[in-house]
Simulated scan of single mutants.
Amino acid sequence: MENVWHLRRVAENASKACWICYKPTTSVLITPNNKDFFYICAGHLVDKGFCQPDPDEAAAAVAKKKKDELDAEIEKVKKEYDEKQKLKREKRKGKEKEKDKAKEKEAQNKDDDEDTKDEKAKDDKIKELSKSKEESQADLGPRIFRLNKSFYQMRLDKLRNAEVAKRNRERLSNPSNFPSVPSGNP
C-alpha cells in the first residue's frame, strides 16, 4: 500500500471521532484504492508531525489562492469604477434638470429602472461571488497528503492485524482444522 492519502469531506450528520484525539470531525483521509480510511481533525492535517501535503498539489493550491485574490481585486476595481460612473451620470442628470424638467422626469424614470436593475444584478453577482469564495476557502487547503513514517507504519500494522484476525476466525470456524477424536481402544 502506497503512502498517499486523499482528503474527503462528509456531511455534518456523518461525522465520527478523529483517529488521534477522538473529537468529532467531517474530514476523512482515504487511500486512492479505497482500502483504508480514517477520520482526522483539520488541526492534525496542518500538523507537520503528522502529515505533509503533496508538494505539487500544495503549489497548485497556492496558485489558486493567488488567482482568487486577483479576481476579488478585479471585482473591487470594477465596482469602484461603476460607482464613479453612476456619480457622473447623476451630475449630468442634475444639469439636465435645470434645462428641461419635463423631459428629464421621463428619462429619469427609465434610467432609475435601469439603474435599479443593474444594481440588483450587481448585488446578486456579489452575493454569488462571496458564496463561491466561502466554498473555495474551505477547499483552499491541500487534498493529497503523505503520512509521517510512524503514523503510516501504525496504519499498516492495523491492516495486517485485521487480516490476521480474519484468517484466525476462518480457521476457527472450519472444523477440519481441529484434531479428530481417537477411534481406537486405549
Rank of each mutant, 00 (worst) to 15 (best):
G43P: 01
H44Q: 04
H44E: 08
D47S: 10
D47N: 14
G49M: 01
P55Y: 14
E57N: 07
E57R: 02
E57V: 01
A58C: 03
A58Q: 07
A59Q: 09
A59P: 00
A61D: 00
V62C: 05
A63S: 07
K64T: 02
K66F: 00
K66S: 01
K67E: 06
D68V: 04
L70N: 02
I74E: 15
E75M: 13
K78T: 07
K79H: 10
D82H: 13
D82S: 15
D82M: 14
Q85V: 12
K86V: 09
K88W: 15
K91E: 13
K93V: 07
K97R: 11
K97Q: 15
K101P: 15
K103L: 14
E104K: 12
K105L: 14
K105S: 14
A107S: 13
A107Q: 14
Q108G: 04
N109W: 05
N109L: 08
K110M: 06
K110H: 03
D111S: 10
D112W: 05
D118R: 12
E119W: 08
E119G: 05
A121R: 10
K122N: 15
D123S: 09
D124R: 14
K125Y: 13
K125R: 13
K125P: 08
I126C: 11
K127S: 11
K127Q: 14
S130H: 15
S130Y: 07
K131I: 08
K133E: 11
E135H: 03
S136M: 10
Q137G: 05
D139L: 03
L140Q: 12
P142W: 01
P142Y: 00
R143W: 03
R143Q: 07
F145Q: 02
F145I: 00
N148I: 01
N148F: 01
K149S: 12
K149G: 07
S150W: 06
F151C: 11
Q153T: 10
M154A: 15
R155W: 07
R155K: 09
L156Y: 06
E163W: 06
V164F: 11
A165F: 00
R167P: 01
R167L: 06
R169C: 02
E170H: 02
R171D: 08
L172P: 00
L172R: 04
S173R: 09
S173D: 07
